[in-house]
């Protein structure tokens, strides 16, 4: 069943055994034939570890991603915007839960993943370490950050690991609303007063480059790409997805009447692509290493949320035990 990976983790087969060549070959044949791998199927240990790392990072990104936007819920400019933002942040909490559940099928407990996040051992998307300084940032996040996330996530709906692919199908359906509500905020600001339009421009200026960094290091540098593509966890390389995102997004920005903060950005007629300037990978590495503008604040907020919610979990468990003891 869906979660037996977790339930059987303790008494399952010894995973340190050498992996039999025949099973490995059979596994690759199945993946090549686009068959889905399910929780109880045999899989190479490295495949399992790669998926646990990727799915848990993805789940952490959803949970930490609630923070920059949650920052603006009480200050949304209208009830309509507030209801939409609240629903979006709630979706992100839900996405985190679908993903933790998918990772648990690989034999890791959610508590362990949360501990890794709070201890600073697990990564989450670098983008959430940037601050949301104005209301326009909520528009820019929906449009750019969710837009980039969708670009990454749509191919994951065809990922070889069944529970991850199924979680991604749900998530992608819901993300589309996130991107459209963000773009609508940008449209409204750009059709507003000069000060409102300037606010939208400022948000684009600050979020554009970090959004491009969301696709990860360039293909020449990426550590995990080749095997992930062979295992059909990934379908496109980081640079391919980044280019797709730029091609889709630049015309949307021009429609808003905004300028991209990249003097090298130009349309290349021969290839039909928008070519962009060099990404500041030092900034990316610095943020990933924990030194972005908000890394410490984000982790402190997650730790506080965990500590402040402890009594709720304890009360729920005490209640469950009491009812069980009474035979209810």
């Amino acid at each position: 069943m869906y979660t037996q990976g977790l339930l059987d983790a303790k008494d399952g087969p010894d995973r340190r055994q050498p992996e039999p060549e025949a099973q490995l070959q059979r596994f690759h044949e199945r993946v090549d034939a686009e068959e889905k791998v399910e929780p109880n199927d045999w899989m190479p240990e490295a495949y399992r570890r790669t998926l646990i790392r990727q799915i848990s990072q993805h789940a952490h990104s959803e949970i930490v991603g609630m923070l920059p936007e949650g920052n603006w819920i009480t200050r949304a400019p209208s009830l309509r915007r507030k209801a939409a933002l609240l629903a979006k942040v709630q979706d992100e909490g839900g996405h985190g839960l679908y993903l933790y559940a998918a990772a648990e099928t690989l034999g890791i407990a959610r508590e362990e993943m949360v501990e890794q996040l709070l201890a600073g051992k697990a990564k989450y998307s670098s983008i959430f370490n940037y601050p949301t300084l104005s209301w326009a940032d909520i528009g820019a996040i929906g449009w750019l950050v969710d837009g980039a996330a969708i670009m990454n996530q749509i191919p994951l709906c065809r990922c070889s690991y069944g529970p991850y692919a199924r979680a991604m199908i749900r998530i992608c359906k819901e993300e589309s609303f996130h991107q459209r509500q963000g773009y609508e905020i940008m449209l409204t600001l750009c059709a507003g007063t000069p000060a409102q339009k300037a606010m939208a421009q400022d948000a684009l200026d600050r979020w554009w480059w970090p959004s491009l960094m969301m696709f990860g290091p360039s293909d020449k540098e990426s550590q995990h790409s080749d095997t992930s593509i062979r295992w059909k966890i990934k379908r496109f390389s980081n640079d391919e997805l980044r280019q797709k995102f730029v091609d889709a997004t630049v015309p949307q920005g021009h429609h808003l009447g905004l300028a991209f903060p990249d003097p090298a950005l130009r349309f290349e007629g021969a290839s039909g692509h928008w070519r962009f300037g060099a990404i500041d990978w030092n900034e990316f590495r610095n943020v990933v290493a924990g030194n972005g503008p908000c890394n410490r604040q984000r982790l402190a907020q997650r730790r506080a949320a965990q500590a402040n919610g402890a009594w709720v979990r304890e009360a729920a468990i005490a209640y469950g035990e009491k009812r069980a003891a009474r035979g209810q």
Binding site: Y2, T3, L97, Y98, A101, A316, G320, A324
Partner: peptide, 20 residues
């Protein structure tokens, strides 16, 4: 089947399933 979740009893599992 749509997925799984953690809860201490059936009533809370139903409530969480409705939200998630």
């Amino acid at each position: 089947h749509v997925g799984s979740l953690h809860a201490v009893d059936a009533a809370m599992a139903l409530g969480a399933a409705r939200d998630v």
